[in-house]
Amino acid sequence: MVKSQQTGDQTMIKKINTAIVFDSVLKNGPLSRAQISERSGLNKATVSSLVLDLIDAKLVEEIGQGESNGGRKPVMLLFNAQAGYAIGIDLGVNYIRGVLTDLLGHVIEEREWSMKRPDLTSGLKQLTECIDKLIALAPESPYGIVGIGIGVPGIVDDKGTILFAPNLEWGRVDLQQYVEDKFRVPVTIDNEANAGAQGEQKYGAGRGIAHQIYVSVGIGIGTGIILHKELYKGASGFSGELGHLSIEYNGKPCRCGNQGCWELYASENALLEQAGKQGLPEELDELIASAEAGDERTLALFRSIGSYLGAGIANIVNVFNPDVVIIGNRMSKASRWLEEAVQEAVDMRTLSYHRERMRILFADLQDRSAVRGAAYYAINTFLGKVRNVG
């Protein structure tokens, strides 16, 4: 019994030490074995043994000699980002965007397809075809496709089941199970705004910022809430549906069953609806081109949508007191014509203490925040398993 306990303790210690060494190389490489020992406090023999295991596993590689500090030149170590590849999918209401990335999240391939018939049967068929095409583009690697992450415009439970997606008009769908059965790799499903928040925090405007709210403004509006650098999902995992804040008490009816929801007045859908009523182009890129040409009616329309967008953001600022609010998804492409009206509405409607140091940013990744965040989910799941190997 004692011997078994000692063996268990040793296995656990090795797992912990492997994770320490692996994270040192992943986050701070290139590093030498001596530098890892110095940073981690582990002795050099332990580090050398664990590094050898990671090299054998094709996760770490020797990349040549570094600078000498007086003795023999050290051999430098680097994480092998091409040990495997991840797929990220942003499942939109009228499009599917997909990326193939390496294990550091660098985009290797990117594709976008329109959702010609977004009913459930054809939608799942198109999703499967998109993933197949991305898999076919992956270079040879030791671990192949390590996982798939998918951001969807709706409420998702912790088993990856879509419970409610009013703009997509799909019912309950066990999407994680469906995709895992098809492709036999780990799959993570989350709300696209949560994926977008992760994408901006990891690769975009939110890097290094502790408290941030990502506002995804597309056909609808969703939000991803990051507090203390961690994604906040609420008691049941469903937080972030702030597109359904009521901003008009007796307002327009929403597909969610409520009325006067914020997304009815400040989303891309709201923009295009108003554009149609005014005889303006009913396509975002055409409206942007019209604004670039200085058309006054288009500029006024963007200002109006920006004011509504700012009104909802003001509520978010007053509730969460974030460091930044990041506006992303397709409407971020119109930042030039939205930002002034958004800022004015926020300045007018927020408490002065809350806005004193708060900044409004537009997503660095524009409409690619969610697809990059979805790929990050797949990468993070794989790296978590690596850290557990001992």
Rank of each mutant, 00 (worst) to 15 (best):
Q6I: 15
Q6L: 15
T11R: 15
M12Q: 15
I16C: 14
T18H: 15
A19R: 10
F22Q: 01
S24K: 12
S24M: 10
L26W: 09
N28D: 09
N43G: 06
K44G: 09
V51M: 07
L52I: 12
L54V: 07
L54D: 13
I55N: 07
A57Q: 14
E61G: 08
G64Q: 00
Q65V: 02
S68W: 04
N69C: 11
R72S: 08
K73T: 01
P74M: 00
F79K: 07
Y85F: 10
R97M: 09
G98V: 04
T101R: 02
T101P: 05
I108T: 03
W113F: 11
W113H: 13
R117F: 12
G123N: 05
L124N: 02
L124Q: 02
L127N: 02
C130Y: 08
I131M: 06
K133I: 10
L134K: 00
I135H: 04
L137R: 03
Y143Q: 05
V146T: 02
G149N: 07
I150A: 07
V156C: 03
D158P: 13
A165Y: 08
D181A: 14
K182T: 07
T188R: 09
A195D: 07
A195Q: 04
Q198E: 13
Q198G: 13
G199K: 01
E200F: 04
Q201P: 12
G204H: 03
G208E: 06
G222Q: 00
I225A: 06
L231M: 10
Y232A: 13
Y232K: 09
K233R: 14
A235V: 12
S236Q: 13
S239Q: 08
G243D: 04
H244Q: 07
L245V: 06
Y249A: 15
R255M: 14
R255I: 11
C256S: 08
N258P: 14
Q259K: 15
E263T: 02
S267K: 01
A270K: 03
A270D: 08
A270I: 02
L271P: 14
E273S: 15
E273A: 14
A275C: 09
I288P: 13
A291M: 06
L299V: 02
L301A: 02
L301K: 10
F302E: 06
F302T: 00
R303L: 03
S304V: 03
G306E: 02
G310H: 00
A314Q: 00
V317H: 01
P322I: 00
P322M: 01
V324T: 06
V324G: 01
G328A: 01
R330W: 10
E339T: 05
A345G: 09
D347A: 05
Y353W: 11
H354G: 11
R357V: 12
M358D: 02
I360K: 05
L361N: 04
L361E: 10
F362K: 03
A363V: 02
L365W: 04
D367H: 11
Y377S: 10
I379P: 11
I379Y: 11
L383R: 12
L383K: 12
G384W: 10
K385S: 12
